Amino acid sequence: MANKTENMENNQNNPAEQEEKQCGCACHKSEHSEKSECACHSDGECECKKDISEIEELKAELEKAKAESAKNYDNYLRSVANLDTYRRRVLRDMEEIRKFAIQPFVEELLTSVDNLELAIEHARKNEDFKDMIAGIEMVLGQIKKVFNNFGIEEIRPLGEDFDPNFHECVAHSPSSDYPENKVSSIMRTGYKLNGRLIRPASVVVSSGADKE
């Protein structure tokens, strides 16, 4: 009886047996695992090396996923910005097309308008052409009304400062009516389409009063 009691006490005091009994690690419970995969402690806590390795792998995968997520979000922001830029450019181009699509047509029509104005100017020299002048002026007025509806403006800078951006100087001439560098005569009317120059006005620029 004494020997049996002594054996029981020895078993209870055996640290290895106590550790293995207290350890509930899955590695120890598995038939195909090795104890070297565990770091078991005498207090019953067990650090499974296999579990630790898996956790480290999961952490690495999580960090990788976070990096990919940040990269994808950055790409998303760039795509949104590029799309907005493209949208604004398309709208701007469409507006440009809307405003200036008729420019080639207007440029072709201006020659006819010039001829009508010349016809009126020459017809005024003859009293017999009064009725014809009235008819031509009516047609010319209708054309210019259409011009105005589509944003076409005349450039008639008589008496204004010469502006090379909108005026084409064909000659300089002394003038007692207009100071130097003022437009003293218009040889051909200029035109703008929605603020854009389509033809400069051909003008004579005053060189000041004639010096004797």
Rank of each mutant, 00 (worst) to 15 (best):
A123V: 03
C48S: 07
V203K: 08
G24M: 08
Y191M: 12
H172L: 12
A123Y: 02
R89W: 03
E57A: 15
D93N: 15
P164C: 01
Y73T: 15
E96H: 13
Y191R: 01
R92W: 15
E57C: 13
G208F: 01
N149S: 05
K144M: 01
S185Q: 15
E153N: 03
R124Y: 07
S173P: 07
R124W: 09
T85R: 13
D163W: 05
E34P: 14
L83C: 10
C40E: 02
G44V: 00
D163Y: 05
C38L: 05
R78A: 13
T5C: 14
D43I: 05
C40A: 06
K29W: 14
S176N: 04
L140W: 04
L62E: 10
N13T: 03
A26W: 09
S79C: 09
N14T: 04
S184K: 06
I198W: 00
I136E: 01
N149A: 03
N7W: 05
S176Y: 02
A209Y: 11
E180D: 09
R87D: 15
I198K: 06
M187F: 04
A16C: 14
V90R: 07
E56D: 10
A209W: 02
D177P: 05
N194G: 07
F105V: 11
A60L: 07
G190V: 02
M138E: 15
Y86L: 13
K71G: 11
D177F: 11
T111G: 14
R88M: 10
I102L: 10
T85K: 14
H32G: 05
K71W: 00
P15G: 03
E95R: 04
L118Y: 09
S207Q: 01
A134C: 06
D114W: 04
A171T: 06
I155N: 04
E9G: 05
C23F: 10
Q22K: 13
E56G: 08
F147M: 09
A2P: 15
P157L: 08
H122P: 11
D93R: 14
E137L: 00
V113A: 06
M132W: 08
E68F: 03
D131N: 12
L77Q: 08
E168D: 11
N7M: 13
L197N: 00
A60C: 03
H172R: 10
A39M: 14
N13F: 00
L58F: 11
E96W: 12
D93L: 12
Y86M: 13
K66A: 10
E31L: 09
I52N: 12
S112W: 06
I55Q: 13
A16K: 15
F162R: 03
G135V: 12
E168A: 07
D93C: 12
N75W: 15
G208C: 03
K125W: 02
K144H: 00
R98P: 11
E34V: 12
I152R: 01
K192F: 01
E68W: 08
D114P: 03
F150Q: 02
E63G: 04
Y178V: 02
D210T: 15
N75Q: 11
F105L: 10
N14F: 06
N10R: 12
L77R: 00
N126R: 14
R88A: 09
G24T: 11
L109R: 07
Q12E: 10
N82V: 08
N14R: 07
N165T: 08
V204G: 00
I97P: 01
A123Q: 04
E127A: 12
Q142A: 04
E160T: 14
A2N: 15
N148W: 00
N126E: 06
P157G: 02
R88G: 13
M1H: 08
